[in-house]
Design a protein around this nucleic acid. Structure first.
Lengths: 222, 222
DNA sequence: TAAAAAAAGTGTAATATTGCATTTTTCATT
DNA sequence: AATGAAAAATGCAATATTACACTTTTTTTA
């Protein structure tokens, strides 16, 4: 019998029967990624469903000129659901921003589970609903802000993702610029002035939020 | 026996059995909306799944200050799937931009279909995948463009949605401005200069694209 | 650990965008 | 058809953002 990890209550597979869980685990592989390793490269064939068991990753859309992070995900999240159900290729990239464990699940088995197990299917639809909703609201939200507002919004989000006011930014300055849709100079300038105002402390990738209140005010009002 | 409309090949319910189709149609209502009527108001209770059978609608996120259209949908599309599966309330608004026919489907019956019919479930997951993917790419894409690029991008998209180089804009100038994330003055200025360059002809909501090539070039290169 | 390369940071001139005041046009209503 | 209200359009000064050229710092690699 396959070695099935202890089922956490909130996991995606609670709705599966023991036999189905076994089947999934038989047809899945566990991979380890180091910080900054590429989990998915946009354009690659999408024949697996990916589930981030441990760690964190950033999802980005790539084009000829730049890479734009549109979402940071933490453990217990599907990485590939967004497109691997239809597209032959991944439409975005995923890069580990912490050491991560990813389960690769055979797409046809996963589909079979959706077909066989209605409760599981409903659960998956709900997860997709939630994710889409959040992404749309976040992106629309960012699009109405000036540099300062956008950068501060991202910083507050990062603090909440990392559950700490001190964290390592998973972005280069250029990536941060692409994510908020402004030039790197503007973004760097904003970080510098936030620092002068003693709202944050930034040395390299390490960010420390000193005054969360003021940060949130700027995030809201530009 | 319930009156079931002739099943189109590409419809969302082809995977349902005749009995299931009957059930769905018994537990659903057909509503007519005139142009500019509100189909969904953000914040209302989401106890139905909405399917746009005929017509067109714009989906928007509302906040205190503005309404931002993030997607235009045409006939044979689910309107509410994106959030009505989890949230108690709709997280966005939908307004008919043409006379439209909407089928309201009981949420619990719809969920039951997903549970009972695996093929249907997979189909729904695929639809959601596609939609999310398209929205994310479109929004990210817009966020890197200047006013001209963004406005031209939206205009080319509208032409493709309406399948014609002449169409009625489903936006006020202010809404268009919110959608692209720029001020109304900038957007109006852009439309004016596009007109001076004889790339479009705009009188009120009526837009005529005179030079699609140049429009696309601006859409791409700002 | 030194050298090279990449990323981060800076000041400033050029450019793009906004916000305001005001006018014109459009649209609905009587 | 006249009237009023809302939307659209305009020009311009104020502001925000970019792009450039350059320096400094950090990271990588030999």
């Amino acid at each position: 019998m396959t070695n099935i990890p202890a089922v956490k209550n909130n996991s995606w597979f609670v709705d599966l029967s023991t036999a189905q869980q076994e089947l999934i685990f038989e047809h899945s592989t566990l991979l380890q990624f180091k910080k900054d390793e590429t989990i998915i490269k946009q354009g690659f064939m999408a024949d697996r469903i990916l589930y981030l068991e441990e760690g964190m990753a950033k999802l980005s859309v790539e084009d000829r000129q730049r890479s734009t992070v549109f979402k940071i995900i933490a453990n217990d999240t599907f990485i590939g659901l967004m497109c691997s159900f239809v597209k032959r290729n991944f439409d975005f990239s995923a890069i580990a921003i912490q050491a991560s464990t990813v389960r690769l699940i055979d797409r046809s088995i996963f589909e079979q589970m959706i077909r066989e197990n209605g409760k599981f299917a409903v659960h998956i639809v709900q997860l997709m609903s939630l994710m889409t909703n959040k992404i749309v609201h976040d992106l629309v939200n960012l699009s109405h802000k000036n540099v300062d507002g956008a950068v501060c919004t991202v910083l507050t989000e990062l603090a909440s993702i990392f559950k700490s006011n001190t964290f390592l930014m998973p972005f280069s300055r250029v990536e941060l610029a692409n994510t908020v849709g402004y030039s790197k100079e503007s973004v760097i300038g904003c970080l510098t002035s936030l620092q002068k105002e003693k709202i944050i402390k930034a040395s390299g990738k390490k960010i420390e939020i000193l005054d969360m209140n003021r940060l949130q005010v700027i995030a809201k009002n530009g």
